[in-house]
């Protein structure tokens, strides 16, 4: 299914208020295909949307390729979901943008188990909370590491467990 077809399908099921489609105006066909994204406006409906995307037979997004987090540098954070259907070979990108103070989105681990570690990583690196995650711990850094290092204004600690960190 073409990406616009997917969006129409979504909007007919959820109504127009679900989000906005951003089409890429890039020259390369590949960047057009992957650079376009759907901005979900209401995080509360994300889980519902995710279940719909996976279970609707015409969409069948059975694979979450990647869950990434982006710090936009203006006090807002985004979570980006790259989805793919191994049945129909179509892809879609979902985005949720939240202000840093309310960086909380529902966890999609119950929909795609691949999201389990990916969400833990996003929490570890970017400090985004995933509500309803079964194992909400840091994954790469130690639990007592100060801060979330991939935020743009992160400053590394001078000492960690008595070891000098910077040069």
């Amino acid at each position: 299914m073409e990406q616009l077809g997917i969006i129409e399908r979504l909007q007919s099921a959820f109504g127009e208020t679900l989000g906005v489609w951003h089409a890429s105006n890039s020259e390369s066909a590949y960047a057009r295909r992957m650079g376009s994204f759907f901005q979900v406006s209401d995080p509360a409906r994300l889980l519902e949307l995710a279940f719909f995307l996976r279970d609707e037979p015409a969409l069948a997004f059975d694979s979450l390729l990647l869950l990434s987090s982006v710090d936009h540098g203006d006090g807002s954070l985004s979570v980006v979901y790259h989805l793919e259907s191994t049945v129909y070979r179509h892809q879609i990108v979902l985005k949720i943008t939240r202000p840093m103070a309310q960086a909380r989105v529902p966890s999609v681990t119950s929909v795609w188990s691949h999201a389990n570690w990916q969400e833990r990583e996003a929490w570890d690196m970017m400090g985004i909370r995933f509500e309803g995650h079964p194992d909400h711990r840091r994954i790469l850094l130690e639990e007592d590491y100060p801060g979330h290092p991939l935020r743009k204004y992160f400053k590394e600690p001078d000492f960690y467990h008595g070891m000098k960190v910077p040069n």
């Binding site: 790469l140 590491y145 290092p149 590394e156 070891m163 000098k164 960190v165 910077p166 040069n167």
Partner: peptide, 19 residues
């Protein structure tokens, strides 16, 4: 000494001789 991770490695020990 930390090698290529010397400058931005927030999680890298700059040289094992620190421990």
């Amino acid at each position: 000494c930390g090698g290529p991770y010397w400058e931005y490695g927030y999680h890298v020990l700059r040289g094992v001789d620190r421990v």
